[in-house]
Simulated scan of single mutants.
Amino acid sequence: MLIQSKLDSWRNVSRFALLCVGEYGELLSVELAETRARLTREIIALVALAVSGLFSLSFFCIALIASAWNTRYSLAVVWAVAIAWFALSITAWLSYRAQRPVQSFGILKRELRADLETLKEALK
């Protein structure tokens, strides 16, 4: 009788595991799409940060050189461009920092843990 109850228990656990495999596949595809979207946003923010940082440094150097020329309008234009690029780089940096850290496949991990706990309880 003890062997029969163990076999029944293992049979039920295997049925449960087989039912969950399909759900894990669907959950994996959803989480993969979310991770791809987050990664794309992060890469775009990093590229914007790099480009605006390089332009900011370039225009500040140009602004410092133009400061010595002492013309009436060129200084205002050069400094305005330099400040605009600096503001853009600060905005890109702030948007990058505002993003949450990527927690890839968090839902799938929680579901797997919960199902493993259920299986452990069923096998006791």
Results as ranks from 00 to 15, higher is better:
Glu121Asp: 03
Leu94Ser: 07
Leu54Tyr: 02
Tyr73Asn: 06
Val21Lys: 01
Ser67Phe: 00
Phe105Met: 03
Met1Ile: 04
Leu88Val: 12
Ser29Tyr: 10
Ile62Cys: 06
Leu116Arg: 08
Gln99Arg: 14
Arg38Asp: 11
Ala50Trp: 10
Trp79Asp: 00
Gly53Glu: 07
Gln103His: 04
Val21Thr: 04
Arg113Trp: 03
Trp93Thr: 15
Ala45Ile: 07
Gln4Gly: 09
Leu75Cys: 12
Ala66Phe: 02
Ser52Leu: 07
Leu123Arg: 08
Thr118Val: 09
Arg41Ala: 12
Asp115Lys: 07
Leu75Ile: 15
Arg11Met: 08
Ala17Asp: 05
Asn70Pro: 03
Pro101Cys: 08
Ser67Leu: 03
Arg36Trp: 13
Asp115Cys: 03
Glu111Cys: 03
Lys124Tyr: 06
Leu57Val: 11
Thr40His: 14
Ile3His: 09
Thr40Leu: 05
Val77Thr: 15
Ala98Val: 06
Trp79Lys: 09
Leu39Cys: 02
Trp85Gln: 15
Ser29Met: 10
Leu46Ile: 07
Phe105Leu: 00
Ala80Asn: 09
Leu75Tyr: 13
Asn12Asp: 10
Leu57Cys: 10
Leu123Gly: 01
Ala48Ile: 00
Trp79Gln: 11
Ala76Thr: 11
Glu111Met: 01
Thr71Asn: 05
Trp69His: 01
Phe59Gly: 01
Ala66Val: 05
Thr118His: 03
Tyr24Leu: 12
Trp10Arg: 12
Leu123Lys: 11
Ala66Glu: 05
Arg11Gln: 14
Leu2Asn: 12
Val13Glu: 00
Leu75Phe: 13
Val47Lys: 00
Phe59Arg: 02
Val47Cys: 01
Lys124Thr: 05
Thr40Lys: 12
